[in-house]
């Protein structure tokens, strides 16, 4: 379980260049838990890998990435809400 990594460590962990991670953060596609110190947790790392895969595997361009992330987040939220409210 990853608790908190600096960008350098996150780059090493994910095998993704630091500048690319920084770009994802500046684009606000990834929002670090600690915005001041820019430390990333497991959620952020998995999201970074997902964004990279969207671009590399599926050829998704920069304009479409925030739309896809938005939809994924909404779906995840709705799935979670559905489970909590209706699946007891």
């Amino acid at each position: 379980m990853i608790s908190s990594l600096k960008i350098v460590e996150a780059a090493e962990n994910s095998g993704i260049d630091q500048n690319i991670i920084l770009k994802f953060i500046l684009n606000e596609w990834v929002v670090p838990l600690n915005k001041k110190e820019l430390t990333l947790d497991e959620e952020d790392i998995e999201r970074i890998k997902l964004i990279r895969e969207l671009g590399e595997e599926f050829g998704v361009n920069d304009e479409a990435i925030p739309i896809i992330l938005h939809l994924i987040d909404q779906l995840n939220h709705l799935h979670l809400s559905f489970k909590n409210n209706y699946c007891h």
Binding site: E43, E46, L50, E57, D73, H77, L78, H79
Partner: peptide
Amino acid sequence: SKQQWSSFYNTQQNAGRYANSYADQFGD
């Protein structure tokens, strides 16, 4: 790909920050 999608999904299933950022936008 499936593994990567599910890895991120798994991080969101216990009060994930990204998924929960939508809680305020539309009340469940």
